[in-house]
């Protein structure tokens, strides 16, 4: 029988919904995957967003922004993640060291988000910013009322890339035993020559990535302020969705 179908059958087998002595249940693996991703993302945001906005607004430390953009553009290749995971293998395989694993995810998550925040601000028309300053906006007002709204599409695009980056890396990290994630099914399936389980793991990861990316794509459309979406000039009364449809940015990340 087709392996893919077997994978789906494996997923829908009620026996795989609970964690037993012999195997992890899908909900537990999913929860762990989400917690790892979520916690890593939170820390990533706290570090990358202020830094990216600072660089984008002041133009200071632009080199960091440029390096981040280039690094994140290199990310889609699985090879880079693989090398990274190998480097961090000692950390991933330490059963107790949850925090260290998260550090690794954060390091991979920061560049795309930092690059997004930086390039989002960098892309705002200099004359618009100059005018905002000339009419008496404070630097903070310029940032929050002009630069962030106008750069929002790229900022969220960076967040999208970071999210996928981390989801993918969490999966691969399980190759080394820990931490628990949907990737665990792939690892276990491989180890036990249980191919339906392995395929099931792959399907679950892909589904998770697609769903989250889809949700973020919707968010990305809605953060684009009216008046700036491409081709608004004569489409004043077009329905919001229709106008924005042509305007969704694709994230740099295409892996997983």
């Amino acid at each position: 029988m087709n392996l893919i179908i077997q994978g789906f059958l494996w997923i829908f087998d009620p026996a795989h919904f609970v964690t037993t002595a012999t195997g992890t249940g899908i909900p537990d693996a999913l929860a762990s995957h989400l917690v790892l991703t979520g916690v890593s993302l939170l820390v990533t945001i706290v570090i990358a967003v202020p830094l990216g906005l600072y660089i984008g607004h002041t133009g200071k430390g632009r080199l960091v922004g440029i390096v981040a953009s280039n690094v994140s553009r290199a990310f889609p290749s699985l090879g880079i993640i693989a090398i990274f995971v190998v480097i961090f293998q000692p950390i991933f395989s330490q059963n107790t060291n949850f925090a260290s694993a998260i550090v690794a995810f954060i390091l991979l998550g920061i560049p795309p988000l930092l690059a997004g925040a930086y390039s989002g601000l960098e892309a705002v028309d200099r004359q618009t910013i100059d005018a905002a300053r000339a009419i008496g906006m404070t630097e903070w007002q310029i940032l929050t009322k002009v630069e962030i709204p106008l750069g929002a599409r790229l900022i969220v695009g960076g967040f999208r890339s970071s999210t996928l980056q981390i989801i993918a890396t969490v999966t691969i990290a399980s190759l080394y035993g820990n931490p628990l994630s949907l990737g665990t099914f792939i690892t276990n399936g491989l180890a036990q020559a249980d191919y339906p389980q392995m395929i099931a793991g792959a399907i679950l990861v892909i589904a998770l990535a697609l769903i989250i990316d889809g949700l973020l794509a919707i968010v990305q459309r809605f953060v684009v302020p009216r008046g700036v979406s491409r081709g608004t000039t004569k489409t004043r009364n077009t329905a919001r969705g229709a106008r924005l449809a042509a305007n969704s940015g694709t994230p740099i990340m295409e892996g997983n």
Partner: peptide, 15 residues
Amino acid sequence: RGIGYVMQNSGLLPH
């Protein structure tokens, strides 16, 4: 804030 400023390309906030 107390001085009006008008520039060549209007400099309006597009959003």
